[in-house]
Design a protein around this nucleic acid. Structure first.
Lengths: 194, 194
DNA sequence: ACGGACATGTAATTCGTTACATGATTTC
DNA sequence: GAAATCATGTAACGAATTACATGTCCGT
């Protein structure tokens, strides 16, 4: 739900046919997100199907098939540009999901899952930082992308720290009253079979 | 690529049939990620196809169809648990993509896109913070989920700030030497037709 | 008698992604 | 003449999502 719109923008910006759109995309994003050319063509077809884009008939003498935006396409592009992207409250994050599942079930000690993930995230952070250090000659887009990655991983680490704290407090609280922190909540299933 | 594994974990933890897995998932995650029951069944089918899960024959007298993990399923689960989730360097972020496309093309003033997005992110942050404030009675999973969302939005805002800075410096630098900061790079297409 | 929770599924769509197949032109 | 780049596409898959269809059981 994004490459789609990027292609509209690149079309509006002067690119015309599939292969060209692919390299325009690489240039614009500093090749941050490798994209398969095939995807460009399928996306273009879908856009054509949806009336956002049109190619007049057959490929030209050079074997190229130039597309252009339709009015609807320009409208869709304008809407993408104007409408900020919102973080949905139900936003799916794999790390959160894994941690929450670990906390809720008995399949593994939640604390271990968290600390494993934390170690991995720290390593990732270091590798990204190293890349940033040597990226002064790289295109701006690539540098910005690296900045985004660093900030994202940092926020993941912060969250993992926070989870560790919360888990620690929950544990110490419950050892004073309840003895089974990680056991099944018994809130699902086991409802009077028959 | 996550609900999939979560279901394996819930199966290992005692849940057995589709509907039960659905509510176990809701409980475990504090209903942070609403999931359609249909998805549980289709996922279960795929798992069965892949030999990770098996149901003996037909539904029981109560119309239920209890599944259990196979050896391969337990292995897949163990691998999911042990292997930390890595942030791929090519990780696709819609906000980054939109901003980078705006910077690279002439479809819209990049600064405006950034500040629009920033306003939206600030609003989202406020709404999430408000939810957190009133969430003391909510399940731990839900609170942790909110924490994750807040940290994620904060890191988005930090990145947008950074982009604004970078864009400002690039602009002032280029006004001293080059006059066209936002124009097409001419690195794609226009390669000697014929 | 009705609604809601319990329980199972199918069909269809979307977007992203990969692997494959084909051929012309350019460059070394 | 071989390899890289340019250029087009198809087939198929994965995962998430939505909408729909069906039926039981329980409580009020």
């Amino acid at each position: 739900m994004a490459v789609k719109d990027a292609l509209l923008a690149l079309l509006a910006d002067g690119a015309q046919y599939g292969y060209q759109l692919k390299s325009a995309f690489d240039d614009a994003t500093g090749a941050a997100w490798p994209i398969n050319v095939g995807q460009v063509y399928t996306t273009l077809q879908r856009h054509e199907r949806d009336g956002l884009v049109e190619a007049d008939g057959e490929p030209d003498e050079d074997g190229r098939r130039p597309y252009k935006l339709t009015a609807a396409g320009r409208e869709a592009l304008a809407e993408w540009i104007d409408t900020p992207i919102e973080q949905p409250i139900a936003s799916r994050d794999e790390v959160s999901m894994k941690v929450l599942i670990a906390v809720a079930t008995g399949v593994a000690p939640a604390m271990e899952v968290v600390s494993h993930q934390r170690v991995a995230a720290m390593e990732t952070l270091q590798s990204f930082t190293a890349l940033k250090r040597d990226a002064h000659a790289e295109p701006l887009a690539w540098q910005l992308h690296l900045d985004r990655l660093v900030l994202a991983v940092e926020s993941e680490i912060r969250w993992l720290d926070l989870v560790e704290q919360r888990l620690a407090t929950v544990d110490t609280e419950s050892t004073a009253s309840d003895a089974k922190p990680n056991a099944q909540k018994n809130s699902h299933g086991q409802r009077s079979a028959r």
